[in-house]
Design a protein around this nucleic acid. Structure first.
Ligand SMILES: [Mn+2]
Ligand SMILES: [Mn+2]
Ligand SMILES: [Zn+2]
Ligand SMILES: [Zn+2]
Lengths: 140, 140
DNA sequence: TCTAAAAACAGGAATGGTTACTGATCACCA
DNA sequence: TGGTGATCAGTAACCATTCCTGTTTTTAGA
C-alpha cells in the first residue's frame, strides 16, 4: 500500500496522515513481522525520541480503524499489529513470542457455519493459534 | 462430573480438593454460564466472605490445569471459565458481555489443516467469536 | 498570509485484570 | 499428636492499555 492510498483512507474517515502516524507505519514495515505496540514505540523512538507511547497506541488504533493495519490478540501477551490486512491465520510461539503466518487455511466455511448456528449477529471471529516455533523446538 | 472424579483428577497432579476449590466449582455450577473470575469470587463470597480474590484465581488455575474446567479469553474483557471442557465454540456479546455456546461447528478439519501448514508444533488453537446477542439486537 | 478553531500530541496519572509475595492456617501422615 | 508441605487471606505489585491535561501542530476561512 502506498502513501497516497493511506492518506486517502485516513481522509475518508476524517483523519490526517501525521508524521507520527507515518512513523508508526514505517516502524511496522521495518519490524517486518507482528510487533507489539511497545515494539513499534521503540523503533519510532530511534528516529523521534520525543514520541510518546500513548501516541503510538492512538496511531495504531486510528490506522486499524481505517483498515490500513490489522491486529490480533493472544491471551497473556500484548496485542500484535500487522500490515497484512487480508484474512489469514497467525500462530504465536508460547516460548519466545514470535508470530508467523499460517498459509493455506480457509476459514470461510467455518465462519458461515457459525453464522448459521447462533442467534447472535456475528461481528468478528478469529482463530487464535499457539505453539512452539522451530527455533524453540530445537532447544527443548 | 462427580466429586470423586474431581478429587481423583486433583490427586493425579498432586493437588487436594479443598473447601475453596469445591466452592469455586459450585459457584461455576450456580453461575450456569461462562463467569469471569470476579463473578465466581462474588458467588463464593456469599457463603464464605473471607475468601480472597487471589484464592479464586489460583483455584481456577489449578482446576483448569487438571482438566476439570476450561477457560476462554476475549480481548478487552476478563477471561471466562466454563464447566464444559469438550472442544466447542463460544460467542461473546460485544454489548452486554454474555457468552453462549455455538453448536454444530466442527473445527477438527481446520486444526488439521493448521498442523499441516506450519512448522510450529501447535499446542493450542481456539476460535474467538464476537457478536450481538438477541437481547442486545432488540434494542439497537 | 494571518488567525481562530480543531486535531493531534507529549507526558504522566489512572485503570483493570491478573500475579506475586508473606505470614498464618490447614491437611495429611508418621 | 507433631511435623511438614500445601494452601490460604490479605495486600502489594505488575503490565498493557486508556485517560487526562496542557501544549503544539494543522487546517480552513477571511
Ligand atoms: Mn499476520
Ligand atoms: Mn462454553
Ligand atoms: Zn519460539
Ligand atoms: Zn448482549
Amino acid at each position: 500500500m502506498f502513501v497516497p492510498d493511506i492518506r486517502e483512507k485516513l481522509r475518508g474517515s476524517g483523519y490526517t496522515l501525521t508524521s507520527q502516524r507515518r512513523a508508526v507505519l514505517e516502524a511496522l514495515l521495518r519490524a517486518k513481522g507482528h510487533p507489539s505496540a511497545e515494539d513499534v514505540y521503540l523503533i519510532v523512538k530511534r528516529e523521534n525520541p520525543r514520541v510518546a507511547l500513548g501516541t503510538v497506541y492512538q496511531a495504531l488504533s486510528v490506522l486499524e480503524e481505517v483498515g490500513v493495519i490489522g491486529s490480533k490478540h493472544w491471551a497473556e501477551s500484548p496485542t500484535r499489529y500487522d500490515l497484512n490486512v487480508e484474512p489469514h491465520l497467525d500462530i504465536r510461539c508460547i516460548r519466545c513470542g514470535e508470530v508467523s503466518e499460517v498459509p493455506g487455511v480457509a476459514l470461510g466455511a467455518v465462519e458461515e457455519q457459525i453464522r448459521d448456528n447462533t442467534p447472535y449477529r456475528v461481528t468478528h471471529s478469529a482463530m487464535v493459534v499457539e505453539g512452539l516455533c522451530p527455533a524453540c523446538l530445537d532447544g527443548e
